[in-house]
Amino acid sequence: MTSAQPQIDPRDLLAQMHLIRAYEEAIVAGSTAGTVPGTCTSVGQEAAAVGVVNALAADDLILTNHRSAGHLLARGADPGRLLAEVMGRSDGYCGGRSGSLHISVRELGVVLTSTIVGAELALAPGVALAQTMRNQPGIVVCFFGDGAACEGSFHESLNLAALWNLPILYVCENNQWQAFVHRREAMSREHVSSWAQSYGIAASTVDGNDVSAVLAAATNAAAQVRASQRPYLLETWTYRTRGHFEPDDQAYVDPAERAAWLARDPIAMCRDRLVAAGNLSELAATDLATRSRDRIAEALAFAAASPYPAPEALTQHVYA
């Protein structure tokens, strides 16, 4: 059902964030060792992904981008098949053609993933139009960053979605970085949500490192989109604590700014809150982290054992 969301155990949210962190750390270690290609990691942004995805219904559709691991894992993607995709193996969700940058998993409703910054915004209105015209109940959730918000496609997308009453939940993960340029150098305003309001689209900004706050805000936003069949823009205010892609020495990053955000690590914040409230023992918290790392180790072994695609794959699926 697409209306009321089931009660979500905050410990599940913590477990999902741990899994994403373990996945990204395995990629970082692998890329350092030369066994896994470098990717655009989402380290530091786990709460923004987990909070939003857990607010969605099974029949909602998600458009994401190059920094997609959090969205995919929170949606239930198999880390083994994801890592196989990253490593260009045949068991990857896209048969190894995508690599890390454009992973779609249609069976999970993660569709038309594009790595061209802003393309997800250009595609979202059409996906939503098709949902409406085909009388499908699911709303469309479009993840993008502050970088994409500076593309023309952001403004064209919001204008059309408002004009045509399209059920799109725009989620801007404002992670403060547009590749190697700080958001301050690239945006005339601080918040993307303020731009949405000028298109007549309801919008809000939430602390993107507080998973409970993101879940609450996204649940409310998704409910508004469902009820109104109108777009809504949720901005999750967060920080990309690693580089644009691996490896990246981050020499261009202000150490004080990064340190301030690391002190607000979304996983530590969630864990400490659960422990302090007596909802999670120290032992259980440590066990969650360990189990995530174990699961990723298994996934990595699966991916490494998966064969590379056969040469015929070079020209398969070009045309329907």
């Binding site: 896209c94 190894g96 038309l112």
Partner: peptide, 9 residues
């Protein structure tokens, strides 16, 4: 995107 998705779309 058809090719990159392994024929999903």
């Amino acid at each position: 995107l058809r090719f990159l998705s392994g024929g999903q779309f």
